[in-house]
Nucleic acid binder design. Structure first.
Lengths: 149, 149
DNA sequence: CTTGACCTTGCCATCATGGGAAGCCCGAAG
DNA sequence: CTTCGGGCTTCCCATGATGGCAAGGTCAAG
């Protein structure tokens, strides 16, 4: 019989298509640190473990991590990604719900962009009026100091 | 003799033009919480105190807080505000230095805006191709799942 | 004196991420 | 078999700016 002690168990798991956290990280662009974090907050289910307590990831797990990574790159916060994952795994979903999430994210980005653009306009006006030489007079500081002038 | 016990000392200080933290907050738009925080990180010097340990702010202190508030509204992070305050208090400053800080902040905003705009463009392209009806097919999820199609 | 509003400090939470320490594990080389 | 580098584990801390809450002291008005 081939029932051996559970020593070379990681290698065995790898032969069966599993990946340790380092591999998972390398193949999904998600840092090992963040993979553990996502597990701790319940965004991904607890990973399988070897006898030595190493995390094991299946190809499906990697798929999920890549999904998360792409969603993060689109600026989705974790809470929204949870919903997206739920819809992804729901065969009876309505695409309307997904699009709604995307639209909400677009609006969110829009709000933040507008805010920053307003800051930019103010700064540019101020910088424009500042000589920017060796003299101390500076409309930028005057404005910050509240000298409406 | 008028040397009384230090009881009605806050009222006295107020008569001399000082403000407690609530007033300071109301007059500068900076929350009491943040005023204490700014003190704890050294952005503003430790406030004077009454015998009862209440913080006291002079008009100059309020001026400083308003300066900070305006700089925050322009998106400056605390570290940059420290520098701005230093320049503000330096009669021998070069306005070039101030303008340089403003330009750096503009560039910083620009980078963040561009990043978000890129996200927006991707999201809009995806949302555009999604039917958004009761059917489950969804190019948004397909993209997140890595289906390059 | 009581009461309500305000002040104090301190700790926790956010959001997503990185850094580091202490200790165990694996695989390869000697 | 021993050793050694690198990878894994958990746990704690830090970021940046802000809010919230709790326990306790203080002030001012009634």
């Amino acid at each position: 019989m081939a029932t051996r002690t559970p020593r070379p168990e990681l290698a065995e798991a790898r032969e069966r298509g599993f990946h340790n956290i380092g591999e998972a990280s390398g193949q999904t662009q998600v840092s090992a640190k963040m993979i553990r974090h996502y597990e701790s907050i319940g965004l991904i289910p607890p990973a399988a473990r070897t006898f030595a307590n190493y995390r094991l990831y299946s190809d499906a797990d990697l798929h999920r991590l890549r999904f998360i990574h792409r969603a993060r790159n689109l600026g989705f916060p974790i809470k929204q990604i949870e919903k997206l994952l739920g819809l992804w795994n729901d065969p009876g979903r309505n695409s309307a719900e997904v699009r709604q999430l995307a639209r909400a994210q677009i609006a969110e980005l829009d709000a933040r962009i507008r805010e920053m653009q307003a800051m930019q306009r103010s700064l540019e006006a101020l910088a424009h009026h500042c000589h920017g030489d060796e003299r101390p007079e500076c409309p930028i500081l005057d404005d910050l100091a509240g000298i409406v002038a």
